[in-house]
């Protein structure tokens, strides 16, 4: 049901005329049979809770020194609590923006890599933190 989940395909049975990707030989059972438990599943590894995880795409380069560049895809978990230093998605002027949450002279601010931390926007009651960025799929 979730957009990000592909159904897990069961191993094809020997001799089955499966679709493309059916790997088992018809003649001899594979010696790997009892060891093969499926490929690496990025959904399982990168997503802690699929109900709260969303994928987003970055536009702009103000987080480039943090390794998050224009065009990169990011994994965002809404259920995590942001900490000092977390990269977060915040709601700013009706728009979703990506910033680093940092403490600066006793207050929390939303900073980007480009502007000095003094000019960063202070975190107020009215600021909504949308989610916490857990991964960046950087295009190389």
């Amino acid at each position: 049901m979730f957009g990000m989940d592909l159904p897990r395909q069961p191993l094809p049975k020997p001799g089955s005329h499966g679709p493309v990707g059916a790997v088992e030989a018809v003649g001899f059972p594979s010696p790997a049979r009892d060891y093969y438990t499926g490929g690496i599943d990025l959904n399982r590894l990168l997503i802690q809770d699929r109900t709260s995880t969303f994928l987003m795409r970055v536009t702009g380069n103000s987080m480039a020194s943090s390794g998050i560049s224009h065009g990169d895809e990011i994994v965002v978990d809404r259920a995590l609590s942001p900490r000092d230093g977390s990269v977060v998605i915040a709601v700013h002027a009706g728009e979703l923006v990506i910033r680093r949450l940092m403490s600066h002279s006793g207050a929390m601010v939303l900073s980007s890599d480009e502007e000095p931390v003094e000019q960063s926007e202070p975190l107020t009651e009215a600021t909504t933190i949308w989610g916490v960025v857990t991964r960046c799929l950087h295009h190389v």
């Binding site: 979730f2 957009g3 990000m4 969303f54 994928l55 987003m56 795409r57 970055v58 536009t59 702009g60 380069n61 103000s62 987080m63 480039a64 998050i68 224009h70 895809e73 990011i74 998605i89 728009e95 979703l96 923006v97 990506i98 980007s112």
Partner: peptide, 15 residues
């Protein structure tokens, strides 16, 4: 956009 089900449609965040 189909924000959660289409790779081309995922939400855009401004950096």
């Amino acid at each position: 956009p189909k924000f959660t089900t289409e790779w081309a449609d995922i939400p855009i965040v401004r950096a």
